[in-house]
Design a protein around this nucleic acid. Structure first.
Lengths: 291, 291
DNA sequence: TTGACATAGATGCACATCGCATATATGCTC
DNA sequence: GAGCATATATGCGATGTGCATCTATGTCAA
């Protein structure tokens, strides 16, 4: 993540719009929210005589609260590329385009719980590694209303990702590639299984790019790879995962030495079968339980 | 950050409470918010005849939106410790305890803009390095209502931090130390300038701990240190900053070699004055402008 | 004026790691 | 059983780090 800000408070100014009429709650004194008096006051203080007039004058922003959603970048590594699951949108905005699995945060559920629930609803996946990624909250990232989305990333092995997309309607598997875009604003480019570029909704290309950069960074100091592999795997399997995530080839020998020395993996004693060459030993991650 | 989740969706269940009666918006079909129809429907669909009855039955959660706030962990390194600025709370909850500068996100401002605005309001600081840290959204982290806080961290040089706290009422400078707490839940312990432990409000000890871990991690691969130093500094100054952030001593020679080889700093040609030993050369960060 | 002192800054060396090359091992296919 | 493809082990030079040593240079005290 290379997002840093060093601005003056005067930059708060924003273009006039319908929302500018919204009441804003001052935060002097306490810096914490009270019960949402704004919504209440508006309703009780101004009795509604004409429902149509009320609806016309109704301003969602009067409640002074962004919507809070979660989006999940589900990633897996195979065929030399990172892949994700996208949901085809049936309704505007961005109808026909593809979005990350996402949805509202319920009032009583935590953020990771919401992310896992949403992921289960869209993909059927139940036990997946998931971490918070970054929160996207630009005022106009959703054309309808202010939406703050707490993005997460999740990792699964390839078979589970592909099954999830096949079993669920409106979902597709897409390859993800970071495009070294102009003026340093890296985006993610996604393609379906036939190589056709897909068009992403909202700022989801940015979210995906952030997810890819995050797991690249984590790979260096965290044994993240085992979330992307089945229980048993060869060292070459693991290396291919690392190479796919990092997007560059790695030296085989030093990769092997480093992994064996790391203490993160242990030999199972078993070997590959059914390969037309010397079978490699199968390894397993030591701390698979300690997710 | 070592927060990962691998749960079943069935874990969503939560204790019964007043909020459980709140309507929850289903997200089937589209995974994006529409205009907040819940708030509207509640008012228009169930005409209110008795205002007192309405208020009694009024449920803030019916609007189905958490409040969104920003909190800022402002950090600086001096006297061998990391320090931050805290605001003394005058009102409940947590009256008398200390909190990070924080406040609501306005409907038209971005998250970093909100964080910078809040920081300016509480400390008077205007141009500071600031990045998003992590979003804290446990359902009961605020005893009054659901509050999702997008925490940020900010870095300044020591003089600016101390001036900010001196110039603003209800603010104090506090040292921050990570306590290797039991069962791996690391917390931050804060003390005032006299060494007296301060009690933090909400989950702000966790936020501070997350901020410290974040800059420790970033220090290894990012020239973050220059945000914590004045324009010109000696290599020993820089090393002391690194040691304070990391919480451990560093080898002087290899630190020197590594910094000079990194290309991040350049000599100014000037030297220290007024020290009772051989004066060291003053350096400057190459990319200071590229915040 | 001069020498003690404290830190700056440079150099040399042992050690670990990495990239690269080479050599050997082993199961499969024909 | 030969050939093949990959696994696995070993050796070597380049590089970075920790540690020790040596020299440089300003201030301070006599």
């Amino acid at each position: 993540m290379h997002i840093a800000y060093m601005l003056c408070a005067s930059k708060v100014a924003s273009p006039r719009s319908r929302r500018d009429r919204a009441r804003t709650r001052e935060t002097s004194g306490t810096n914490r929210p009270l019960a949402p008096s704004v919504g209440r006051k508006r309703v009780s203080g101004a009795p509604v005589t004409d429902e149509r007039a009320f609806l016309a004058s109704y301003d969602p922003a009067a409640f002074d609260r962004p919507s809070v959603t979660v989006d999940v970048a589900l990633l897996s590594a195979f065929d030399g590329s990172l892949h994700t699951v996208l949901v085809r949108r049936r309704e505007p905005p961005f109808a026909g385009r593809y979005a990350l699995p996402g949805g509202f945060v319920k009032m009583e559920e935590s953020l990771p719980t919401a992310a896992l629930r949403v992921l289960t609803q869209k993909t059927g996946l139940r036990r997946v590694f998931l971490e918070q990624l970054y929160t996207f909250g630009e005022p106009n990232r959703d054309p309808r209303t202010r939406v703050v989305s707490v993005a997460h990333y999740a990792l699964v092995e390839p078979a589970r990702l592909q099954k999830a997309a096949k079993d669920n309607p409106d979902t597709v598997v897409a390859s993800v590639e970071l495009t070294p875009a102009s003026d340093s604003v890296e985006r993610a480019a996604v393609r379906d299984s036939e190589g056709t570029p897909l068009s992403l909704a909202f700022d989801h290309a940015e979210i995906l790019a952030t997810a890819v950069r995050r797991i690249r960074g984590k790979l260096d100091y965290t044994p993240i790879g085992f979330q992307l592999l089945p229980d048993r795997f060869t060292l070459l399997d693991l290396q291919r995962v690392h190479e796919t995530v990092l997007g560059r080839p790695l030296n085989k020998d030093s990769f092997r030495r480093r992994m064996l020395a790391s203490g993160e993996i242990e030999p199972t004693g078993e070997s590959q079968t059914g390969v037309d060459h010397r079978p490699a030993e199968l390894f397993r991650f030591v701390r698979r339980s300690a997710v």
